[in-house]
Structures are given as C-alpha cells and as structure tokens.
Computed example of a mutant assay.
Amino acid sequence: MANINIDTMTKLSFRVSEAYKSLRTNITFCGKDCRVIAITSCTPNEGKSNVSLNLAASLAETGKKVLFIDADLRKSVLIGRLGVTEKIVGLTNYITGQCEFKEIVCTTNYPSLHIIFPGPEPPNPAELLGSEAFSDMLGHMRENYDYVIIDTPPLGNVIDSAVIAKECDGAAIVIAADAVSYKFVRKVKEQIERSQCRLLGVILNKVSLNEKGYYGKYYGNYYGKD
C-alpha cells in the first residue's frame, strides 16, 4: 500500500480554504444518505480534479473517513500532479480481477483519507465502470467510509460520468467561470438526471477574487450604491 503526500494539491489561500469549508458544509447538509458523490464537468481543464481532491481532503479534516476515487480511466491527471513516480495498481486492475481491493487503496498524509488511482487505461472504460464489479465495490465502500468522492471524466466529452453517477447518491458539476455556455451546462445536467442520480448542484470554479472580479462586481453593484 503506497502512501501519497497530497500537500501539493491542498495548500490553499485563506479565501479558497473558506470556500471549500462552505462546500463541505453544503455537502453535509445534503443528508446522511448522500455519501457517494460523483464530481464531473462539461469540458476538460475546468479544475474538476483539483476540486474533487480538495473537497475530499476538507471532509477528511473533520475526522470523517473518506475515500477518493480517481475514476477518469481515459486521461487521469492526478498521478502526475501529485508527483507519484512508483508503479501503482488501480481501479482497472481490481475491476478486471487482477488484484485484491486492498492492493489498490493508497494512504495519504491525511490519516482518514485514502485514494484509489485509475490504473492502466482499458479499451472499454464505460463498460468497466458499468460492471457489477464496480457496483459491488461501491456498495462495500458505503460500509467502510463516511464519504466516497469520485472524480469522473468530463460528461460533455464521454458518457463515463453518467454511468458512474447511476451508482452514486448524488453528483455535482464543476464549471469554470466564463468557460462554457448555458446550453452546454443544461445538456450535462440533463444527462446526469437521465442516469437517475440526484444533482446536488454546481460548483463555480476559477472565479477571480480580486476587486475587479466577480466578488468586486457583486459588492460594487449591490452594496456600493445607495
């Protein structure tokens, strides 16, 4: 079992850290039956993987036992961002029966946070994620973790996220500010709803926090005038 240091991803400014605490609180307010959560986006590069991992770390900071699953079997970025150089077996290895579950679970420098990486890219990602083995694994994880946060591929590109969402208690969409159209977001929203998964909401990412950005406009327009 490998041990992963995730400090490179979780060193946040005060304002961003407070935003994640608010997100964490909103997740807990979704109810005790909302514990397996898929995070997706419309397109690549909206910050979905960063948001997913930081949310998992924020939940773990409260003492909750959290499992983070990197389920982007096609193009994962986290192993590179976390600087993992050793060979790690992952989700595809387990689903295809090549190893035991305990072999794919990595510990982290957060005592109550574990990570599962994707493993080698398979030729049939959607089929693997829709398999009985994956469904059974999530069922087992419900009994062993307080929260399971699943980082899924952008739903605007591939169907994998909807396949995963079908097995989850809820899903959230990460949207980068000024990056995608309303119509595109609506299509992704409808795709999640067709999977019969509860849509928890939208996480607006990459918002400018300076005085000329969104918050500056908000306070200027609504609180700065008589």
Rank of each mutant, 00 (worst) to 15 (best):
Glu18Ala: 09
Ser135Trp: 00
Ile164Gly: 00
Pro125Asp: 08
Pro154Gln: 12
Leu204His: 09
Tyr147Gly: 05
Met141Gln: 12
Thr10Ala: 05
Val202Lys: 03
Asn45Gln: 14
Ser195His: 04
Ile27Pro: 02
Thr8Asp: 14
Val84Pro: 03
Glu190Val: 07
Lys187Ser: 12
Arg24Ala: 04
Ile175Gly: 03
Thr8Tyr: 11
Gly201Ile: 00
Ile88Val: 13
Ser76Leu: 01
Lys189Cys: 04
Leu12Asn: 11
Lys212Gly: 06
Ile149Asn: 11
Asp226Met: 11
Ala71Asp: 10
Lys187Pro: 06
Lys87His: 07
Leu128Phe: 01
Lys183Ile: 06
Phe101Val: 10
Lys21Arg: 15
Ala162Ile: 10
Val158Asp: 09
Val158Tyr: 09
Ile4Lys: 10
Thr108Glu: 09
Pro120Val: 13
Met141Glu: 07
Asn3Thr: 15
Ile175Val: 15
Phe29Lys: 12
Glu86Met: 11
Leu59His: 01
Asp160His: 07
Ala38Pro: 03
Leu55Trp: 07
Leu73Gln: 10
Lys212Met: 06
Leu155Met: 13
Asn50Ser: 15
Lys225Ile: 13
Asn124Asp: 01
Pro111His: 10
Gly224Gln: 04
Leu78Pro: 01
Gly80Cys: 09
Ser52Leu: 12
Leu209Phe: 12
Phe117Ser: 02
Glu132Asn: 05
Ala176His: 06
Lys64Arg: 14
Asp33Ser: 13
Lys189Pro: 01
Val89Ser: 08
Leu67Lys: 13
Arg35Glu: 10
Glu100Gln: 06
Ser13Asp: 15
Asp151Pro: 10
Glu211Ile: 11
Asn26Leu: 07
Gly220His: 14
Tyr145Met: 03
Ile4Asp: 06
Arg81Gln: 14
Pro118Val: 01
Gly63Arg: 13
Glu121Phe: 09
Asp136Pro: 00
Asp151Met: 04
Gln98Lys: 15
Gly216Trp: 04
Arg194Gly: 06
His140Lys: 15
Gly130Glu: 00
Thr152Ser: 14
Ile116Phe: 02
Pro111Trp: 06
Ala177Met: 10
Tyr145Cys: 02
Arg24Glu: 03
Tyr20Ile: 06
Ser22Gln: 14
Met137His: 04
Glu46Gln: 12
Phe134Tyr: 07
Asn26Tyr: 05
Ser195Gly: 07
Phe117Ala: 03
Tyr223Asp: 02
Leu199Tyr: 08
Phe134Ser: 01
Tyr94Pro: 00
Ile6Ala: 00
Asn26Cys: 03
Glu167Ala: 03
Glu190Ser: 13
Lys11Asp: 13
Arg198Val: 02
Asp178Leu: 09
Ser22Glu: 11
Lys32Leu: 04
Pro153Gly: 04
Leu55Ile: 07
Val84Tyr: 09
Thr40Asn: 12
Ile192Pro: 06
Lys225Leu: 05
Val36Pro: 01
Lys187Gln: 14
